[in-house]
Each structure stands twice: as C-alpha cells, then as structure tokens.
Design a protein around this nucleic acid. Structure first.
Length: 390
DNA sequence: CTGACCATGATACTGCTT
DNA sequence: AAGCAGTATCATGGTCAG
C-alpha cells in the first residue's frame, strides 16, 4: 500500500517562523480514524491554507513521497472545493490512491479567497509562479476604488468569487441605509453594510455606492486574459467564472511540467469549463500538442473553443458528456496520441459547496457524482499506460 | 457564537414570431 | 395580443470549521 509522509519543516509564513512537524498517514494506511473510531474520516483543513508551499517562500515547506505506483504516467491534477461536507475529502482521497490533498486558499496569491483542495501526483519541488505576480490585494487590483472606500471597511481581500452576484435591489438598500445615516455610520449600520459586502463581495464604486464585480474584473482576479468570457450572456459569464480555477494557483502547481515536457504535453481535460488549466499551461509556456476536452456547458465550450482558436496550434478534440467518454473511447484516444501526459480537471462541486442550500448531498449528489467518472477514466488511463515510461 | 460558501428554483422580463 | 423560448433578476439558509 502506499504510504506517505510529509513533514512540515520550518517555513516562513507572513514573516514569522513556524515550527511544525506533522505526519499524515504514517503506518501505511492513508488516513486512519482515531483508535476509538469516533473521529471518522476527519481531514482537518490546514490553517493557514497554504498548500505544500507557496511562491516567494524559500524552499518547500513540505516534502512528500508518493508510492512508485502513483507517479506518472500520467500526471494528474484534480480539484474541488476545500469545504466539502464532513468526510467527503477523505472519500475523494481514498478514490485517488490515498494521496493527501493539497489545500490552498488562493488569497495568498491573488486578491480574492478561493479555498480549494487539489489532489495530484506532481512533484512539489522547484515550482515557479507565473510572472508578473498577480495583484495581491483589492487596492493593488483596483486602485481606483480607494477613492470611495470607507475607512471602516477594512477588507484587503475579496471573498470567494461565486457564480451569482448581488441584486440591484440589495445594493440600493445599502445605499439608502448609508445615505440616511450619520457620517461615519452607526455601528449597527456599519455591521449591516459590512455583512452584506462580505457576503456578496461588493466593492465601493461611488459615494455610498457598492456594486458587485464586473465579469472582466473577475477574469482579472482569476488570472484569465481580458475578455476571456466575453461573447456569452452576463449571467453565463458569472456562472462560468465562479466555477473556474484561479489560474495563478494552478499554474504554480503545474509549473514543474515545463522542464519535464520541453516538447509539449498531451492533455486529457475533464470538466474543462472555460479552460483554466489550459490557460495556466499556456501562460507557463507549455505547448499543448493535444487537448481532449470534456465539457457539457454550451457557454463554456464556446468560450474555451474561441480562446483555443485564437491562441493555440495543437489539436483540440471536444467531447460533450463525460459519460460518453467510455473506456473504449479512451483506449482509442490513447493509441491515437500515444498516451496522455496530464489528466486534469475539477469535478462538479454543486453538491459539495456550502452555498448550495438545496442539494448539498455530497459526492453521491446528482452532479458531484461525476467525480466517479473522473476516477474511472483516470484509472483506465493509468492502466492502459501502465509500464510505459517517458 | 460568527461567518464563509465553484448554488437552486421561482418568477419577471425581453425579444421574437404568429 | 398571445404564445414561445431564452435570459435576467431575485430571495432563499444550512452545514461546516474556527
């Protein structure tokens, strides 16, 4: 069985020294519950949520060893929301060779929070970030908002960019509350306004006037090229951006591929969305010889195809439904292209995400259960490529 | 207790065709 | 005017971790 052990050496985070030593899964069985069995499947989220390491800090803060069985080919990179219901990440990990997820909050790399878990078998040494580094605070990203930003709004980072934005009625209510209040507003008005601003990620765009981010501002924060999602309806833009990767974060993890694949990569991209992974590879200067992209959303497909045609020269194969990517079809793609170097994607989070009030039924939920297709396909690719070496 | 969160479903609206 | 389809807008709260 695979073991793995990673150790947090002393690392400098936010200027202060941390000394921690942690062991996960020592003893050869991944994540065991505690001995009395009461603590089933607990997988605590790290605080601060900095993953195995971050750009700008010297040396890896964590070393890990993967079993030979779990190293590529292919490399794979899986993503989902960090704050899934209890036990779900343990379940995900069990289905992915018991590899420990790397939990990262993208607020350490950009101006908005994005707490995500990544399970991958990439090396974690010698990563390099995309340059230039993205703006790290709200004011660095949007200096012009300083003008209207009240001193009692102490936010430096936005919360997670989601798929829905605040209504005009809500921002009106906030404006009315502020206009009819003293200056500065009373504590209770301040609290009301701040609660809504944090909940809806509002920014100050005028006197007493807050508004949600525009889609192009989200593109900017998330590391996409300007107008990447332009050409579909505004709601669709919000939706697809809310569902996407933070490009700099993913690129940092994928950066180790550059030296390993100087002639480019052949990618199997599951749940491609608007192509966050591909944009990351492109920005890293990693040529994509082939991308087999699986994506069901019409708007996302349109956005991704348009970006591909503008920027790429490799082969793009588009598949709509992951269910139609049968093992036979994967086998034929593998023989056609000589195997995949990277399998990448984040499966639907709908039934895991905290913001889903209605159907947060975990991995077995209607949409999130597609995770098991990711597992099926990954396992098939692994076995079909077994024995192959780069 | 506080506060964050890759959302969903009902309804209103818009543009278009008969 | 009525029907249709696609899109936009709005209100809605529970689970989780700290």
């Amino acid at each position: 069985m695979l073991q793995f052990l990673w150790r947090q050496k002393e690392s400098k985070i936010d200027g202060r020294e941390q000394e921690k030593e942690e062991e996960y899964g020592g003893g050869g069985q991944g994540n065991r519950p505690s001995l009395d069995g009461s603590d089933e499947d607990s997988m605590p989220l790290p605080n601060p949520m900095v993953g195995f390491n971050l750009p700008g800090y010297s040396g890896p803060s964590v070393t890990r060893m993967l079993s030979k069985l779990d190293t590529g080919p292919p490399f794979f990179y899986y993503e989902n929301v960090a704050r899934a219901p209890k036990g779900e990440w343990a379940k995900i990990s069990r289905n992915m060779f018991d590899i420990q997820p790397e939990f990262v909050d993208s607020l350490h790399l950009c101006a908005a929070a994005r707490k995500r878990g990544y399970i991958h078998n990439l090396p974690i040494e010698n990563r390099s970030p995309l340059l230039p580094l993205p703006p790290k605070t709200i004011f660095e990203a949007f200096p012009h908002y300083k003008k209207w930003w009240p001193s009692w709004d102490t936010r430096t980072h936005l919360n997670c960019l989601q798929t829905c934005v605040a209504s005009a009625k809500l921002t009106d209510r906030i404006q009315r509350a502020l206009v009819s209040s003293s200056n500065p507003p009373t504590k209770s008005v301040q609290k009301y306004v701040m609660d809504e601003c944090k909940k809806w990620n509002l920014v100050w765009v005028g006197k007493n006037k807050v508004a949600p981010l525009e889609p192009d501002e989200m593109e900017y924060i998330l590391g996409f090229p300007r107008d990447h999602t332009r050409g579909v309806g505004k709601t669709q833009r919000y939706k697809s951006l809310g569902n996407s990767f933070q490009v700099d974060t993913v690129a940092y993890h994928l950066s180790v591929l550059r030296r390993m694949f100087p002639n480019g990569v052949c990618v199997l991209s599951l749940f491609t969305g608007i192509g966050g992974g591909e944009v990351a590879l492109h920005k890293l200067g990693i040529h994509m010889r082939v991308v087999v992209s699986v994506e069901i959303g019409e708007a996302s497909k349109k956005i991704f195809k348009s970006w591909w045609d503008q920027t790429q020269t490799g082969t793009l194969i588009e598949i709509t439904d992951v269910k139609s990517l049968t093992n036979d079809r994967v086998a034929s793609l593998i023989s056609q292209f000589g195997g995949f170097d990277l399998v990448i994607g984040g499966s639907p989070c709908n039934n895991l995400a905290g913001s889903n009030q209605h159907h947060r039924d975990g991995l077995e939920g209607k949409h999130s259960a597609l995770f098991y297709d990711y597992v099926r396909i990954l396992n098939f690719v692994k076995s079909a490529m077994g024995g192959r070496r780069m």
